[in-house]
Design a protein around this nucleic acid. Structure first.
Lengths: 360, 360
DNA sequence: TCTTTTCATGCAAGCGATTGCATTACCTCC
DNA sequence: GGAGGTAATGCAATCGCTTGCATGAAAAGA
């Protein structure tokens, strides 16, 4: 049986109230007493019961983190960032992975975090208005990454700026026929990121006087495979792009694979730029838009600390900058159409120009 | 103010005891009463206080997961597996990321999970004997991945078999000069995986009658960069290997990059086989030893469920099989030394045969 | 020297559930 | 009709801690 505060009190010959105060470093405890209590606790290897403590104090010492996919690079990086800050402040991290649609619904039906956490961090979740309200009704500080919820703390990158930079980079290299592999999801309820990036892509093209061609936008759903198909689709256009902006590195990876399998090369035949600066991007020498991933997690956690300590009464919103990382997959546009005769095509499905329809 | 059980009891005109029983679906509550209680709870949008509940019952409804790096692919996959099973059984997941050495020490100094979880899942952590004991002294069921702790539940892959298969694969392709990029860590206290794999490598070579050459073992510390250096080191040997077994895909990725930068190709010049079947392995067409990653997480969680429900009184140990996935980076050994004149070397540091010393 | 502060500590009432035991009412079976 | 069961419910102790308020002693001020 673990020792309780009563045992410590008895051993130190003080009341439990004093033990409580001494252990938590509150003032109004004499140095002598405090030491006696600490020693007693040590000797009994006493540790406070978190549940008893929270029941009495109303604080749980726990922060909930809700996200769609722990097992994706981006999210796991953010979680690591959050964890490091919370940990340093003696807060626990309760993880909720909502990847599955059923799990998502169940979460909002039962709200298992209610009364269980002092604050909430929500990562990039597509949320309906009702769901937002449900979260807000928990009446704890909430910090949100990406999507924005009124009254909540907020961290995000400047998606418009990042996407614009990527596209401008391609334009500056002389490209005029620029495709985009978009991450548009089927159910993009409240999932604004893809929309913003796509808008930026179109705007920058327009500013450069390049006519808009819907065929140059292919959906990739943020996956490697889908990115690969999207690239195949783009390459099978009558007038294929000489450069492609994929709004996630994962999709860019797929795109590169397609290129490779078709015996084409980046940047000689097609320039490719991604988004995220995924750890594999360096490996594949992919030009990309870097965002400070773990750092965003730290910022979120810090916002929560502010909220909890009451330092800042009003929720803040911080936008972190992105950065173009030029690597080997982007290069100057050629005037002539690419010729492949000096490459030996790898075995793999040859694109069938006839069976593919154009986008949309 | 959130409603408490007393409010519900009043509204349903029963005692709090009955409310408690009705809500938890215990027997000995009449159907009529149960419905009345449920309705009252619904109307007050009542939710039990987890801390009050655990204080009274002694159960926390929470499982702690302790691991070294959430942000690495392998661990995040395992966590996702664990999460899915726990979630389905209404258990919460408290995450502890011990990557940092200081965090690790602090964790064991303060044992913040004590009294906070009903069970513990430990992923592949290098633990000292004292640390093991500290965990065991928490007196909750513990399931461990990889390393083995006496008296604990245990899941692991057959590392010896996996490594043997990888090396045998290379031997079957006709290779005789086979290097290994090992993951040996500086402080390999209790971190047995690399040792087992290395042992298997040596054993299989011996069985094939291939003499042991310590120069062919280069340390890669499980990182991409370190894997790249290890490969450079191997290639700069007087008699470089024609095939390399990297005991993690990450290190294999680094190895492939080195190959690439030196203008060499896999498998034409050097065959490479990895371990893990990392998601990027398919992308890079890397031959590897696949292990069911998320599945191991599920198994761990299920063991915990068994332990908690008392289904199985004795801790079980399960070994999950690995599987050789043959892709494009391994091929038959050539008789002649590789010649590189048909490749155009990419810009990058040329290996300096003279400034490199041999291993050790 | 006698108030008035200040400081250290104790008392005891919560916090919101769970649960062993007692109680009541209603059956069932001789 | 009374003994013995059984099912439904209530009582009240308990879990282990926090905290507002009371108390007493020592220090400070008049």
């Amino acid at each position: 049986m673990a020792a309780s505060i009563i045992d410590v009190a008895r051993r130190a010959e003080v009341s439990t109230a004093t033990v409580s105060r001494a252990l938590r470093g509150l003032p109004n405890v004499s140095e002598a007493t405090r030491e006696r209590v600490l020693r007693a606790a040590e000797e009994l290897s006493y540790h406070v019961s978190p549940q008893a403590s929270s029941l009495a104090s109303g604080r749980t010492g726990t922060v909930g983190v809700v996200l769609p996919f722990v097992n994706r690079w981006f999210y796991s990086q953010v979680v690591a960032g959050i964890d490091s800050v919370l940990r340093a402040n003696d807060l626990d991290l309760l993880l909720y992975n909502l990847g599955d649609e059923r799990v998502h619904e169940r979460f909002f039906a039962r709200m298992p975090l209610r009364r269980r956490v002092d604050a909430l961090i929500v990562l990039n979740l597509p949320l309906s208005a009702d769901e937002c309200e449900a979260l807000v009704s928990m009446e704890v500080p909430i910090a949100v990454l990406g999507t924005r919820i009124p009254g909540c703390w907020h961290v995000s990158i400047d998606n418009a700026e990042g996407a614009s930079t990527a596209v401008r980079h391609l334009i500056n290299l002389g490209h005029r026929r620029i495709g985009m592999i978009t991450g548009a999801l089927g159910d993009s309820r409240g999932f604004t990121t893809p929309i913003v990036r796509q808008h930026a892509y179109r705007t920058v093209l327009a500013q450069a006087g390049i006519p808009y061609d819907p065929d140059l936008e292919a959906p990739g759903h943020f996956g490697i495979e889908e990115g690969a198909s999207a690239m195949a689709q783009l390459l099978s256009l009558p007038d294929p792009p000489t450069a492609v902006f994929a709004e996630s590195d994962q999709m860019a990876f797929g795109a590169l694979r397609t290129l490779n399998r078709m015996g084409l090369r980046a940047p000689d035949d097609v320039s490719v730029v991604g988004f995220d600066n995924h750890e594999t991007a360096e490996l594949l020498d992919l030009t990309t838009i870097a965002q400070p991933v773990a750092h965003q997690g730290e910022l979120l956690a810090r916002q929560i600390l502010d909220a909890l300590s009451g330092t800042s009464e009003e929720p803040t919103r911080v936008v972190v900058p992105t950065r173009l990382v030029v690597r080997g997959t982007t290069g100057a546009a050629r005037v002539a159409r690419p010729r492949n005769d000096h490459h030996s095509p790898r075995p793999g499905p040859e694109p069938d120009q006839h069976s593919r329809t154009t986008a949309r």
